[in-house]
Amino acid sequence: MNRLSLFGLLGLVIRRDLILAMRRRADVLTTLIFFVMVVSLFPLGVGPEPDMLRKMAAGVVWVAALLASMLSLGRMFSADYLDGTLEQMMLVPQSLSMLVLGKIVAHWMVSGLPLVLMAPVLGLQFDMSAQALWILIAGLLLGTPILSMVGAVGAALTLGLRGGGVLVSLLVLPLCIPVLIFGTGAVDAAITGMSVASHLLLLSALLLLALVFTPWVTAQALRISME
């Protein structure tokens, strides 16, 4: 019997979660529809003036993405917790952090990536320029993985609690403020003709920071919650 390497484990977990998501497609679609709906509500709320919409487009898309990714956080560990798979995952002999990273990546591919792909369409609704759209997408590509990673910590801490879904948003949203600021800041900078690089670089720095620490922190949180 061959031993599974660290990256073998990573691949296995990602593949597993993707297969499961494919067989439960409705969950993925709900998040996406929620995202589209929230964004579409704003013009109805504030009026259809193109100037104002253009100005607030990035902020609206980002806030909606933030809320949509909160919605899907509850699913990250709870199904595995309920059927006992999480117990087996805690006993993984390679590295729990690596396994958690796999789950985060899969979660992002299922709930973050669709938002990124959908964003340009929504941007068009708000009459964003092509350049601003590209920056929005770049920001979302860098930012949504951070949301999944920070969200994983919250999801692990609130595992199995009453009202965990609302609680997790309460815990995670304040921590995501920097991502929101840099993500929307990049688009603003692009519109006003300032340098975009600094915002995107800061986002990348946050991404790296989250990549290094959050899987380990999430693993610790899971150990606490499983006790």
């Binding site: 801490l157 009202g163 610790q220 606490i224 919650s225 006790e227």
Partner: peptide, 14 residues
């Protein structure tokens, strides 16, 4: 939200 004080302490500490 956590009933068990030990888990509450450890989770909120993290």
């Amino acid at each position: 939200a956590i009933d068990d004080p030990r888990r509450a302490d450890r989770a909120s500490a993290l």
